[in-house]
Structure formats: C-alpha cells, structure tokens
Design a protein around this nucleic acid. Structure first.
Length: 709
DNA sequence: ACCAATGCTTTTTTT
DNA sequence: AAGCATTGGT
C-alpha cells in the first residue's frame, strides 16, 4: 500500500524538552562557546578539572535539541565506560534520545564497521581478534618459521617485535626508521624485521584474525579504498567529537580526518599537559597541529578549574610549569579554602601501608565515603603491600589497571574455546586448547592447528562443509593417538556449543567441560574460581558469543581485582594505576611511592621525552584530587629491577623537588612516629628539613644509576 | 621425537 | 605468576 507524504509546515520534530537555554545554564562563557559552536572544526583545550565532560555532555544535549538526530552524533572516548557515562549524563540533561548517540573507543568503532564491511577487504564473517599476548605468540611462530636462528642471540624478542610493528603502524613511520631511532642495536636486522612483519600480516589474514592495530589500519584502508562507504559514513556521522585527543596517534588522527571530510563538523577535546600515552605512539602534534589539518578551526580554552581547592592547584601548577607545553593555561579556581597537600616521609613500604590504612579509616569515620577516596601509583605492583594491609584491616577496595583478570591464564583458557566458536581458524586458540590434553604437547598441537587452519581456508573443496565436519576430518587423523578419544569428544561438544546462541548458556556448559582440566592444571583453584562468576556475569550482558568475545577483547573491564570483603559492598575504595585513573576524580587522593625510580620509573630515566611524560603522569595523578592530597614517600629497595638490584631508593621524585625549588611552602610535611599512632599534623619548615629534600648535585642524565642514593 | 616436570628470570603504563 | 630454557622420562 502506498503511503502518502504530507508535510507539516513550520514544524520541527518535537523535542521532549522544548528548546530552552537549559543546556547553557550553569556554564561559563568558554564552555558555552564550546557547547554552541556546533558547525565546523573546533579544538578545545581543556585543563584538568575544567568541566570538560560536562561540556561534552551539554553539547550532545544541545545538538539533539537543535534537531540533530542522535544517531548521527559520534562520540569517541578512551573507554567504552566513559562514553556510556557521558551519554547517561546527557540523558539527564536532555532526554533519553541521547542514548542513541554512537559512542565508544576507536577500536570498538572500527570493530563495528568492519563486522559489517570487512568482507570487502577479504575477511570472512566472524573474524577473530588477537590481544597483545596472542599477537606476540603468532609473531613468535612466524619468526621461528622464518628461521631467526638461535645463533642470532641478539635478534629481537617477540615482545620487542610487537612493539616495533605497533609503532610502525600507529606512527606511520617505516620500520627501518623506528628501529634506527629506538632500537639501534637491531639496526642490522631491520630488513629481516620487515620481512617478519609482512609474513605476520599474511598469516593473520590466513587465520582470519585482526590484532588491535589492524582494527585501525583496516578501517583506514576501508575509508581509503571504498569511497562510497567513506561518503556514507560521513553523511551518517555529521557531528564527530573526540575526547582525550592528546592521546591519539597519527593513525587515529587520519581516521578522524577521513571520517569527517572537508567542511565536516568535528570537535576534539584534550589537554597537552595530560598526554601520557606517547609510549604507544600517541602524538601531541595531533593537537598542536590541528590548525594545519583544519585551517578554519575555532580554538577554545577551558582553564577554570572546578575540581580542586587552590592549594592543590598551586602545587600541580608548579609541577607542570617546568614542562614545556604548547598551550598555556595556568589553572585557577574560585573554590576557596582547602588544606595544603601533605607530604609524608616514611622508612619503608610497610609504614606506607600502615599510614594509608589508618588515614583512610580516620577519614571514613569523619564521614567521607570510601568511594570518594583513591590510592594511585605508577605501576601495578606498587600497591601490593597496601592491598595486603587493606585486606587485614577489612577495608573493601577495587583495583584498576595492571593485570586484568582477562589476562590470567585460566580465563584465557576458557576464552580460547569461545573464540574458536567465533573463528575456527584461530590457530593461537587451537594451540592453547590442544595443549590441555594429556600427552599432547607443543609439536602435535601445532601440527593439528596447521591442519585445522588449512581445512578452514576458503574453497578447500567444492562441497560446502560445515565447521564441525572440517574439525572432525582433521581430528580423525589423530584418532589412534592416546588423546584421540578426548579429541573427538571435544569436537562433539564444540558442535553442540556452536548451536547455542546465548553466551551465558554456552559458558555454563563450557565450564562443566573445563572444570576437570582446570582442577588438574592449577593448584590455586580457590583463588581463581571467582573469575568464572565474573565471566558469567559479563556473558549475560551480551546477545551472542561472537559479540561477547570481541567486546571482551576490545573493551575489557579494567578491573583487575576486587578486595575480599568487596563482594556485595557498594562503597569501595579505589586502587588504580595513574593511567587507569585518567579522567576520574576523588575527594581524597593518596599517591604511593613518590620515589625517584618509581615515578619517574627507572626505564624512563635517561630519555628526556620519556621523562617529560613521567612528569605529566605525576600531574595527572595530583589533579585527580579535589580536597585532600597525600604524597607518600617510603624508601624502597630496587628488588628485581635490571638496574642495581638491592639498591635503596630514597630520594623523593625529582618532579616534586623541582616544583618546590621556588616555593617550598606548597606542601605540608608530616612526620610519623613508629607507635602506629599518628601524630597530629606536624608542620615542618622545608628549609629546616634534613635529608629527603636536600638538593644534592646531580650527575648528567645519561647516568641514571647515580640517582637514588 | 616428543612430552612434561623443574627451576630460573622477568615486570611500566594500554587499546 | 607466567614465560623461558633445561633436563629427564617415555
């Protein structure tokens, strides 16, 4: 039946809320400008705590109220969680329509597009995704095939190769160039490294898998070669916003540019002072050179800080003042009052833990919820001792960053089965699964895996075969081996699982099968057990196995650990690496082990660029605090570090000392007495202080060993 | 030839 | 805690 079109004149689609100024109320002039400048390219320099998220949220609501369709707004953020957060907040400011906004990370966006259009690039349906360790394993295999013999003792390790490949791809520079600059010791091999890279690429294609970088490069290739799709996407996403732009790399910037096209509407938001991902190719020139890419870009700077009290800002400003930023923005606030950041010097990490626990308990008793407090640190393991102390004190916490639970061996075991259901030619997962059988080792596993991959190549036979038939065909060749029966039993199971849609159900069945293997393989099953519940919980959120698997790999929950008492608690203390704390804030922040060697970390010393990144890391950590900031400095022993094991590190972070050079009154110092009992704030004049802040003569930067004594 | 158990080393930060 | 290299056992 034909439906007649009838146009209502002078009528725009009815927003659930009328067009009002609601979306600019409560914003400062710069924020209003950012919200209302909707057309053309816009660069927003947003200092820490300057209401960046609020601005983005209001902008989304504003666009929707203007009549822009929510599904034509694309919001790129650092994690899926932060996208969801923003869209939830936007729905409070505006209405529920904002939930239809497309949001996520570059990788998840690429994944979505490639699932739809990947066949144009030669991928079969249900391509798999390799996480970092899978990728490294595959690289190791390729390297072995190409005969990087043992005699080449100095040939790069798989992890190094992966790093080189990653930088090559993300920074858009030749392998030769990267190796020459960052790995000069391998210069002579750069030819061979390049050949391994090409072979690795071919292998991935054969296995129908993409690694993290491929998600981006293949999206880029799609945009380049399929102009029709590119144009369609440009029309579809008429308004693009990118958060944390300072942490994007050349590849991502190129994708943005292609996606937006000439004359498109793009807003990027970032803060060069908070750029902390250069180690994986992030390039600040995406921000500083924004005007070269988009000449008519409007630049807006948000520098009023709504988060922290002035004393905290004074210190953070002093820390960052010594780095050379491109965009000047001394942060200021109208939040008066607040106490000085506290510096506590302690003799070892046990004392540090005792202090953290006791102070948190006191503040908690004073009425500050645990969820308003955080303990931050440079590297995952820096919090080990604090975690033990928190357990002992019965304080519930959650830990972000460092090892993720998805990376632990038993979780990877389970996931390997699921990934094979998604993509049966994933030889990395086959290897993992096959090695679980008794009497089946490295060699046989890889033999079987090779045959399986061959069986899944397209056009192997004229007859269309089902996945399970192909698997059976291969397994039958090994039926007479010791593990033959078990192998065939697995094939049967897999074909059953393959028919179930609901990932929760598949996982439950899978766990029944896996449990005996699990019990035998691990001796600390008690500790690992709870992760299966977590997995079940996550699986329940997804519609099918394939999306469950890829989402878990692309946007893994950052949670690495939940404290024992934390089961049903809702008021949890946060422990987090500084990287994972990006964009968040708490009333009270403790920064652990502010020792030269931990922050800056050893490995960053001796390289100015890396050192500068460490400084920004400290800046990010300190600007997370709104009311109270505790800087902790125990003496630590360099245990297993490559450099001088056993060396005592007792100098406060150089960044802190430098910040205090001109004004030592930025801090308050507390001294602890060993009776577990804490003294009331004990004001010590920094000038009069003894050892820790004494500025000694420093050697040149190329000799990092001199620091720390 | 292949598997599996044992002991040594390594650990930044993450999509 | 997981990966590596070595070695002993089948």
């Amino acid at each position: 039946m034909e439906i007649k079109k009838y146009t209502l004149k002078g009528y725009t689609p009815n927003p659930e809320k009328p067009l009002t100024k609601a979306h600019v109320d409560g914003l400062n002039p710069a924020q209003v400008q950012a919200v209302t400048t909707t057309e053309g390219p816009v660069l927003v320099i947003a200092g820490a705590g300057s209401g960046k998220t609020k601005t983005l949220v209001h902008r989304v609501a504003h666009l929707i109220d203007k009549g822009v369709s929510p599904s034509s707004i694309l919001l790129m953020t650092f994690t899926r969680k932060s996208a969801q957060n923003m869209l939830r907040r936007a729905s409070l400011v505006g209405d529920r329509r904002s939930e239809a906004v497309v949001g996520g990370t570059f990788h998840s966006f690429a994944n979505t597009i490639l699932r739809q259009e990947g066949h144009r690039l030669g991928y079969r349906d249900g391509f798999g995704i390799l996480d970092k360790s899978d990728a490294e394993e595959l690289i190791a295999g390729v390297r072995a095939d190409m005969g990087a013999q043992k005699s080449d003792k100095r040939f790069p390790q798989k992890g190094t190769l992966a790093d080189i490949f990653g930088k090559h791809v993300n920074m858009g520079q030749s392998i030769d160039h990267i190796v020459g600059r960052e790995y000069p010791q391998f210069s002579e091999f750069s030819d061979k490294i390049y050949r391994i890279f090409e072979a690795y690429r071919a292998t991935k294609h054969r296995l129908n898998v993409l690694d993290y970088d491929d998600l981006l490069t293949e999206l880029q290739r799609l945009l380049m070669t399929e102009s029709e799709i590119c144009l369609r996407l440009r029309q579809r996403f008429a308004y693009v916003m990118v958060d944390e732009y300072q942490d994007t790399n050349a590849l991502q910037a190129d994708i943005v540019e292609r996606l937006v096209g000439p004359g498109g509407n793009i807003m990027v938001v970032g803060d060069d002072a908070q750029s902390i991902y250069a180690f994986r190719g992030a390039d600040i020139r995406n921000m500083t050179g924004f005007h070269e890419r988009f000449p008519d870009a409007v630049r807006i700077t948000l520098s009023e800080n709504y988060r922290s009290y002035q004393p905290i800002l004074n210190l953070t400003n002093a820390v960052i003042a010594r780095s050379r930023e491109t965009f000047d923005k001394e942060l200021f606030t109208s939040r008066s009052g607040g106490s000085l950041p506290v510096f506590v010097d302690m003799s070892d990490v046990y004392m540090q833990s005792a202090f953290v626990v006791q102070r948190i308990q006191e503040l908690h008793e004073d009425g500050i919820p645990l969820s308003e407090m955080a303990v931050l640190f440079r590297s995952g393991f820096h919090s080990n001792d604090v975690e033990l102390a928190l357990y002992a004190a019965g304080l519930p916490f959650q830990k972000f960053g460092g090892f993720k639970f998805i990376e632990s061996a038993h979780v990877k075991d389970v996931m390997a089965f699921l990934r094979l259901l998604q993509n049966p030619s994933d030889s990395v997962s086959w290897n993992r699964v096959l090695m679980m059988f008794e009497g089946l080792g490295q060699k046989t596993a890889s033999d079987i895996a090779i045959q399986l991959v061959a069986a899944f190549q397209p056009a192997t036979s004229m007859m269309p075969e089902s996945d399970e038939d192909r698997i059976y065909a291969v397994f039958f060749r090994f039926a007479s081996r010791r593990f033959g029966t078990a192998l065939l039993a697995l094939a049967t199971r897999m074909s059953t699982w393959g028919k179930i849609e609901n990932p929760g159900v598949v996982l439950a069945e899978l766990l029944v099968y896996f449990r005996p293997i699990f019990e035998k393989r691990y001796d600390d099953t008690k500790r690992r057990e709870p992760d299966f519940d977590t997995l079940m919980h996550l699986a329940a959120k997804h519609a099918d196995v394939s999306t469950f698997v890829s989402e878990l790999l692309i946007d893994p929950p950052q949670l690495s650990h939940v404290g024992a008492e934390a089961g049903g608690e809702s008021d949890l203390l946060t422990l987090s690496t500084i990287h994972s704390a990006k964009g968040l804030e708490w009333k009270v922040v403790f920064i652990l082990s502010l020792v030269d060697g931990y922050l800056p970390s050893f490995q960053a010393m001796g390289d100015m660029r890396q050192l500068e990144e460490e400084r920004r890391l400290l800046y990010v950590a300190m600007t997370r605090a709104s009311e109270q900031l505790y800087l902790l400095k125990p003496n630590v022993e360099a245990g297993w570090g490559q450099r001088v094991p056993g060396m005592m590190m007792s100098r406060p972070s150089r960044f802190l000392m430098e910040a205090l050079l001109e004004n030592s009154g930025l801090l308050e110092r507390w001294s602890l007495t060993p009776e577990t009992e804490m003294l009331s704030p004990d004001f010590i004049d920094i000038e009069a202080a003894s050892d820790p802040f004494e500025i000694s003569e420093r050697g040149d930067r190329s000799k990092p060993k001199r620091y720390g004594f």
